[in-house]
Design a protein around this nucleic acid. Structure first.
Lengths: 365, 365
DNA sequence: CTGAAAGCGCTAACAC
DNA sequence: GTGTTAGCGCTTTCAG
């Protein structure tokens, strides 16, 4: 009857479950069994399963059949040991708790990586960490324990020890991040964030906006920096006065706070470009609270195009990247590298600029 | 100058990067090197690193020191082979692309799992798949290749072949899902979804609502079913007429569609309980579009408490679960199982009901 | 309490 | 072409 506000019901005593195949754990079927059944040597079987020539068609058939019937596949552990290759790659993700469940990058990137990996039968071992120390430790473990053959390096920072660290560890990697012109010798694989921001600024300019602010992401990340730079360069190119900029950290709270700060200015902007959708939406909400109408009084642009973007009021104008394909490309490149091939340059789809209703003509003064 | 609407800039020709430790790949340092340096046998080293008794304190010290200096750790592959245990567990996630990047469960669960796993030095191997076939194949590969010692089974379905399949494969697992009273013999580890929904319904009732609708999640999932049931049982318990219910699929589009359907009814509900936040927010948007004010004309409750929930207008009343702890508990249980221990029953925090401004008093008629 | 030796299951030289 | 054999690096039994 009462609508209690926050307290919770008591915990479910959660049951437990195992599906341990009971009974006498039968001996694992091995390559030897397959060889025996097919009446060939173990190496013949090995050859067939590694796609190497040197096995007659007849034998080959028998081997495949025997393996099929026995339900045998090469044991990844044994194979890893003898080939000195784990056939798996690692991804360590470092995230603040709040951003974890809202960040559209991580799940899509992982899905894309998987998609690229599964084609070549590589596995992805994932590690989520919450701090610098645990992150470094994760890479060290990956390397020393030979759990993975290579890793992805994401969320590149403006001053980043990790690439050097990985070289030291002898762990191959691909850098994942926006194209950062001349930032380092190693080119990351990435989409053109900057182009998206430029489009946003031009779009606002065309709508008559002359005072365009930016709410940036956490300053330590290269992708924050790339977006910030693109914004300021485009502003300059259009001959506008540099608009106000506020450093934030990608969280909703920071987006709201930054928006209030901007609106408190003596000369508040008529449009704001946010570094991600979460901040943009929180900012929109903050503005609405103050009686500022979007887009009538204030235009807002986000970045990411989260699935919710079309469904908020008003629907959010934003920048969309194909993160899935990005992940695929990274995966293929990493596999090429660990297998000693020259990576085929990835072709990534261009970023898109999605115009919805959170941007509109600048109001006449 | 022009604000082009959708076309993209051209793709960045993405550079490529390897940090292959160049030069003569020195021989890997092995347990033998450590043993030699510490002037003991290999088994002594092994014993120390496996926490087994039988090594004198002096030797122990020397061994640890030698390992430290050589930067040696047991090779995971070799260890896996000789102990017939991969020391890693698997998670296969099957998701429609749209839901992947918006689903708050997946990233938080993974983070929680990691947290539980890292304490015991297990690794998580992740696989994201997009269909039934690839999903089954993923489990088969995990099992036959001995890549993992056990798996998590999430998104339990009302009719689910996977548990049986896993028993057949001899792959231990934990079932991850809401407490489903008497649905099967194996109790899943999960939070009490139903309690959250019940709280929502009671809350609405207390506000004077008498016609409370439900927009359910995809029917094939147990968690959809649990929520649906909780809603209908609570309605019945309060002596209300069963409100309208619409089956949806957790996407924003479906949430909007369902909301329109409900509002088109001859006798539309005064409140709607959605099975997740994404549908709730899309529904709110749909209502607003039609000139229906939330919460003045229509109260809305979501489920999940995504980080955005407090930042939309009006802030969303919703149900929050501690998915991170849930993941931790599942991880610990799975490790207990694969190591042959009796799992210690997990204690999960209760679900919370978060009242914000998307719910309000029922309007007088 | 310590050391030698036999695998774990597969791959890849190298003879046949 | 096909089979034999020696590892991959660690764990673990079993004598010393």
């Amino acid at each position: 009857m009462s609508a209690d506000e926050t307290a919770g019901d008591s915990a479910v005593p959660p049951g437990v479950t195992a599906s341990d195949a009971v009974g006498a754990r039968e001996r694992r079927v091995t390559i030897g069994d397959v060889a025996a059944k097919a009446q060939v040597s173990k190496s013949a079987v090995s050859f067939v399963f590694n796609g190497r020539a040197g096995v007659g068609e007849a034998a080959r058939e028998r081997i495949l059949e025997a393996a099929q019937e026995l339900g045998w596949r090469p044991d990844a552990r044994a194979r890893a040991l003898s080939r000195s290759r784990a056939q798996s790659v690692g991804l360590v993700v470092r995230r603040e708790p709040e951003l974890l469940s809202t960040d559209p990058f991580f799940p899509q990137f992982v899905a894309g990586v998987e998609s690229g990996l599964s084609e070549v039968k590589y596995a992805l071992v994932l590690q989520v960490v919450d701090g610098e120390e645990t992150e470094t430790e994760a890479y060290i473990r990956f390397a020393h324990e030979s759990r993975v053959d290579g890793v992805f390096l994401t969320d590149l920072r403006t001053s980043d020890d990790r690439p050097a660290e990985l070289v030291r560890l002898g762990l191959p990697c691909v850098l994942v991040g926006p194209a950062a012109p001349g930032q380092s010798d190693e080119e990351p694989i990435g989409l053109d964030d900057a182009a998206g921001i430029r489009r946003a600024v031009r779009h606002l300019f065309a709508l008559g906006h002359r005072r365009i602010a930016h709410v940036a992401g956490a300053a330590r990340y290269i992708h924050s920096d790339v977006r910030r730079r693109a914004w300021s360069e485009e502003i300059a190119e259009l001959g506008l006065d540099p608009g106000p900029i506020i450093d934030a950290d990608f969280t909703g709270a920071a987006g709201a706070r930054a928006t209030h700060e901007l609106l408190d200015l003596a000369r508040p902007p008529s449009a704001i470009v946010f570094a991600n959708d979460l901040m943009a939406i929180a900012g929109m909400s903050a503005a609405t609270e103050r009686g500022i109408r979007v887009p009538h009084d204030l235009s807002i642009v986000g970045f990411d195009d989260i699935p919710l973007a079309p469904y908020i009021v008003p629907p959010l104008t934003t920048v969309r990247q194909d993160v899935f394909e990005w992940g695929r490309a990274c995966a293929r490149t990493l596999v090429d590298i660990v297998e000693g091939r020259e990576p085929t340059p990835a072709r990534l789809p261009p970023v898109e600029f999605i115009v919805r209703s959170s941007t509109g003509p600048a109001r006449e003064r």
